[in-house]
Structures are given as C-alpha cells and as structure tokens.
Design a protein around this nucleic acid. Sequence first.
DNA 1: GGGTACCTGAAA
DNA 2: TTTCAGGTACCC
Length: 278
Amino acid sequence: MPELPEVETVARQLAPLLVGRTVKRLEILDTKLLNVSRPGRVRALSIADVRRLGKWITISLKGGKDLWIAVHLRMTGRLIFADGRAEKGATKNDSQQEDKHLRARLLLDQGELLFTDVRRFGEVRLLNDLAAITPKAIDPMSADFQPKRLAELLGKSKQELKAWLLRQDRLVGLGNIYASEILYRARLSPFRPAGELTTKEVGQLVKATRQILVKAVENCGTTFSDFQTAHGSIGSYQRFLKVYGREGQPCRRCSASVKRHNQQGRSTFYCEDCQNVD
DNA sequence: GGGTACCTGAAA
DNA sequence: TTTCAGGTACCC
C-alpha cells in the first residue's frame, strides 16, 4: 500500500506525537517479526527523531547507547498513534478487527504506537545504526534528483520505463500507483525502453515526478483500501488520480478509454493517446 | 531482467 | 472459485 508519499505522511505526523516521549517497552506480538532481538533494549530511552528513509520509517532513540526502531509497512502495514484514551468514535467491531492484526506495539510514557498489518509482509527492526536500510539510490524528493542525474541512471537500459521506475536500486520510493500517474503526467509510454528517452523527455519525467509527489504528500497520500495516516485517518490524493484504478473510464484529458496492462505481474494504467502508446 | 513466493482478505 | 492488492527477496 504505501509508497513514498504515504510513508512521508506517516513519518511527518508521528514526529510531533512521538518526539520527547519516553519508551516503556516494545511488545512484539507476531512471531514472524524475527528481526527484533532483545526488545528490552528500548526501555527508558527517549525518542529524539522520526523520519522517512526510503520507504522505511525510523524512530531514533537516545540515552546510553543510541538505537533505532525501523518500520517498513510493505503492502498493508499501518502505524497508528493512540493516546490511550478510549476512542468514542470507534465501534467495537472496528477495534476488534484492529486487534486481530496488531503485530507490535510501542508503549510510551504517554500513549502508544500500534503496528498493525493484515498481510504480515511488514517489518520491524531494532538497529544500532541505519547502514543496513540506508538507500544507495536517489530519493526523488531530494535535491539530488535532477535531469542530468536521472539520465545517467537510465543509461542505455532496455527495460520498460514503468518497470524501471519501480526499481528501488535506482530511485527509492516510487511504487505501482505513482509510477503510472507520473508517466501519464509526463506523457510517456510505460513501454518505452528506459534508456531511449530524449533529454527533453527526461526533463518531463523529473518535473512530473516532483509535481506528483509534492501534491500527494500535501494530500497525505492515497487511500485505496488500506492506507491510514498516523492519526488513523485516510489520505486524499485518490481524488487526483488520473489513470490508476480507472480502467475503462475516460481519460481526463482526451476522453479515450484508460487502459490497463499487466507488466511483470503488476497493473499499469495509461492513456494510449496521451502517452503515445503504439 | 522476469517469474514466483511470501500472506490475508475483499471483490469479481 | 478465481483474481487482485500502495512491496520486495529470491530463484533461474
């Protein structure tokens, strides 16, 4: 579920809620989360910082030895802050559903952070440093993301552009929704060989990527089915999606029917006319 | 590089 | 019953 804008949203919302709090303990409820060794180490440390690192959310703990809690949401992970007071709005049914998928919880001096994950692909790690999860690839929201740099990365790749955009070893953070949206905005075919873009097209790609990501972050990401922000509310960028999930509906620019095509086991949405697809 | 697997649940 | 899902690790 979460791509860069959703992860950024969660990190930004969690920061003011968590920074300065003291950790009481970390409870691991899902035996699949084997990467967390000696969770007792977090006890009495205070939270100094919360940020996004690629698609990871890192919580930095200070006091004695430095430690980081890192969370990857994968497809259906959620990090929700609960202030401890009973939630009047939530029905009993909702909370029971939530409990069923509760995989870990971080208890604080005030409130707690809940990690829930339906499909159990998500990860929680306890790290002494961030080396293992620090991406070598470029973050498309950073100042390093420039046309010249992207052109170098694209090189002479023959891989289809949509598939190339999903490769986290070149760019970190794009996923299946935003890859389609970005290509639509840049008016580029998802099937073009990545290394054959002209200089002008690489420029369009950079511009479209920045614009889409900025607007998605401003709108707290996209909620299709699962995604929730740290407050348990949903994102609103789905209102702005031009092609993703719109198979058979008219293109908002030219009215041609939006197409869906399976590319390496994943759905790609596009407009044949606007994106010059043969 | 491209398929397949990991897991669960909702929708077709 | 089958297909699909905001991700990615691991196999040829």
